[in-house]
Design a binder for these strands. Structure first.
Lengths: 218, 218
DNA sequence: AATTATTTTTAGATTTGTCTAAATTTATTT
DNA sequence: AAATAAATTTAGACAAATCTAAAAATAATT
């Protein structure tokens, strides 16, 4: 079925919110969408008739099978475009979100098939997030953030959760990027900060907040 | 100023209609936009307050200086995306129009600047139409279609007006593409058809309708 | 110049996505 | 368990872009 860009944005937001909980509430989604709860209720009724969400009034909601498939397709488009913007047009991570937010609503599926091929069928976007394939299959990678990674073991930075310019700035400073190999030397109880060691660089201490956002594979 | 995709579509259509006349009428634009004249009137009032069109009721309308600049920017985006779709993603001419129609409304100007660079600052789109530069400057090329081209002089196909699949089909058959060198041997008064000669291929006769759509530089 | 035809505009309605304010339901406290 | 608080929904309104039907202006014809 066909969805308006607005509907797609709701579907995508529900998808992301559902990732860390099993039911989504009206207020939560309204905060995410920067609209009023009443608007969310209206949209939910619409999405329910389109069989995109399971929804009973006052009881929260989740995506249906079809809704999930739709969401994965939008996420796929978003991440492929981000990959394009960074790896072909030379943008930085922190610059591409808004553009991908628009590009993800371009309808042609043939375009996406060809873009995917043109980019070499990438499995991960520039932030390290997995790109669903054309069937909606998504590669799940076991990753741990720097606050829980085992000590003294070399790990590879795989993704960064917070994708703001402020974060990128800091990571550049520390010379941390996707693919960087590093070790966690120790953790400090006082503020939760973490000492890391990259290659031949001197060990440095990064804040808990940064550590929580950097995810690695072992 | 900022415009909705719908506004942009109106602006672009006025631009194209104005190309061959000096004032545009409500009915003409409504036919182009596939809406009712009443809708055009509504939009014109809106565009007038935004100082995009000169418009007096019952008297037709034209783009203002600002409107023209806006139109050129939309055309620029449309044609750059078409170039991308054909030359990077491998689409054929006749497949790209709808996609470019969506892509042209992506707002980021930085994206277009980078796309332009990535594509090598092309001057013409896959149909041979000129791509306005970032200032809106458009390279005008003297071209003549095959019904008026001087006889027996070698000319280079530069653009094709009708961009339908049906046309592409026929041109492929005749081995005519952008860049093809050819001569017009003679014209037939009876039906306006034209005999052309390409390279070592045997001379062939193309219909008046095709001849009118193929434009060459001498 | 008067009549008829065509074009254009106005008036009022509709759909989508939003809002506010009030009502209802559920959750939390006392 | 009542009372209060918080979350959610309903009701009614609004802006954007469209429509239909009717009115007004312009153009074409007799």
């Amino acid at each position: 079925m066909n969805h308006t860009p607005t509907e797609e944005n709701y579907i995508k937001s529900i998808y992301h919110l559902q990732y860390t909980r099993d039911k989504v509430s009206t207020t939560l989604l309204s905060a995410e969408m920067k609209t009023r709860p009443a608007s969310v209720t209206d949209m939910l009724k619409k999405l329910r008739t389109k069989r995109i969400v399971h929804y009973q009034r006052y009881k929260g909601f989740t995506l249906t099978e079809a809704g999930n498939k739709t969401a994965l397709n939008i996420v796929r488009k978003h991440r492929l475009w981000e990959y394009f913007l960074v790896n072909k047009l030379g943008f930085e991570w922190d610059e591409v979100h808004m553009m991908a937010e628009e590009l993800e609503h371009i309808t042609s599926s043939e375009l996406i098939t060809r873009l995917d091929k043109f980019l070499g069928n990438p499995a991960f976007d520039p932030h390290g997030d997995p790109i669903p394939d054309h069937k909606g299959k998504i590669r799940v990678i076991k990753q741990k953030n720097l606050t829980v990674l085992p000590l003294k073991k070399t790990a590879t930075v795989h993704s960064v959760k917070n994708q703001s310019s402020a974060m990128l700035d800091l990571l550049n400073q520390f010379k941390i990027g996707i693919g960087t190999k590093l070790k966690v030397n120790k953790r400090f109880d006082f503020d939760g900060s973490v000492e890391i060691k990259i290659d031949k660089l001197p060990a440095t201490i990064i804040s808990k907040l940064v550590a929580q956002n950097v995810f690695c594979t072992i």
